[in-house]
Simulated assay, not measured.
Amino acid sequence: MKETGVDAPLIELRQVSKRYDDGPPAVDDLSLSVERGEAVAILGPSGSGKSTVLNMIAGLDRPTAGSVLVEGLRVDGLGESGSAKYRRDRIGMVFQFFNLLDDLTVADNVMLPAQLSGMPRARARARAAELLETLGIDRHAHAYPGRLSGGERQRVAVARALINRPALLLADEPTGALDTASGRDVRELLSELNQDGQTILLVTHDIQLAESCATRTIRLVDGRIASDSAVPSVAGPAGGAR
């Protein structure tokens, strides 16, 4: 099911709730929207519902009530194959622990989503090389992830997430497993990507990450929005190709 509209938000959650078993709701009647070009950080303590929100936007979980739309697509109405295609074609995902395949080279890790989407190998290789150069890790193209630092592996993960030029980049605690210097590098990278026009939604405990690369912060408490505010110190996206 798809709803169209030129001015529609990129992400729209409408009165979304999520319950697990008989406990209190993980997300409670939550509505929010994210426009193209925003970098939104969702903050909150453990159990606040932020990872549940991200998983529902990614199509990895379904709401108990309400609707989740991305680019007008009813994500919560997709079946298993539709959800897989949606994640492959429309979004990129970055995880706390990288989720790279250790038996593939850096270049092959980055190329994998493109090949799964049917991109010809030569074109996928060229796109991967472009991203690795842009992200400053092209010298590691033929290395294996286990030989890289945490910050370098996260850059590989970002390159992999961007290979299919997704409308939306989702990041789950992207600096959570990194040391201070590597975390700073990843914060700068996400900020640069957003300034180049990439829409980003991230969940994090890292206040520095939110303040340095988000244009807007949303705080969740008990599955509800406690605050939603712009981050004035971050310049808005400049637009441009990814």
Results as ranks from 00 to 15, higher is better:
229 S>Q: 10
157 A>E: 02
194 N>C: 11
201 L>P: 02
220 L>G: 05
135 L>G: 03
146 G>F: 12
172 D>P: 05
149 S>H: 11
203 V>S: 06
177 A>F: 12
174 P>Y: 12
144 Y>T: 12
153 R>K: 12
153 R>Y: 04
155 R>N: 02
167 A>P: 01
180 T>D: 07
130 E>H: 13
207 I>Q: 07
134 T>V: 09
201 L>N: 03
202 L>N: 00
147 R>T: 11
129 A>V: 02
238 A>E: 14
226 A>P: 08
151 G>T: 00
165 R>P: 00
188 E>A: 14
158 V>W: 03
198 Q>W: 03
209 L>A: 10
226 A>R: 14
133 E>P: 00
160 R>W: 03
206 D>E: 09
150 G>L: 08
180 T>A: 11
200 I>L: 12
211 E>W: 02
230 A>G: 08
138 D>K: 06
238 A>M: 10
211 E>Q: 09
141 A>H: 09
150 G>Q: 06
212 S>G: 05
233 S>Y: 03
218 I>H: 01
197 G>K: 01
179 D>H: 12
197 G>E: 04
210 A>G: 12
211 E>H: 07
236 G>E: 15
215 T>A: 08
141 A>M: 12
153 R>I: 05
193 L>F: 00
158 V>M: 03
217 T>F: 02
164 N>K: 12
226 A>Y: 12
132 L>Y: 13
130 E>V: 05
176 G>Q: 14
187 R>D: 02
131 L>N: 03
143 A>E: 15
190 L>W: 00
225 I>P: 11
175 T>F: 14
170 L>E: 06
139 R>A: 12
226 A>T: 07
200 I>Y: 04
181 A>C: 02
206 D>S: 06
174 P>D: 10
162 L>E: 06
125 R>Y: 11
206 D>L: 04
201 L>W: 05
222 D>S: 10
238 A>I: 01
132 L>Q: 14
167 A>H: 02
214 A>R: 07
229 S>A: 09
145 P>C: 08
170 L>V: 11
190 L>Y: 02
235 A>F: 04
189 L>Y: 09
232 P>K: 15
198 Q>C: 07
125 R>I: 09
135 L>Y: 03
144 Y>H: 15
136 G>K: 07
142 H>R: 14
212 S>I: 03
217 T>M: 11
208 Q>E: 15
146 G>A: 10
235 A>R: 10
211 E>A: 04
226 A>Q: 15
148 L>D: 10
161 A>K: 01
166 P>K: 14
141 A>P: 03
144 Y>K: 13
224 R>Y: 07
206 D>Q: 00
156 V>C: 03
127 R>V: 03
165 R>K: 14
217 T>Q: 07
193 L>A: 02
170 L>F: 09
213 C>S: 15
144 Y>E: 10
234 V>N: 13
127 R>G: 07
174 P>H: 11
235 A>G: 07
225 I>L: 11
235 A>P: 00
153 R>S: 09
188 E>V: 04
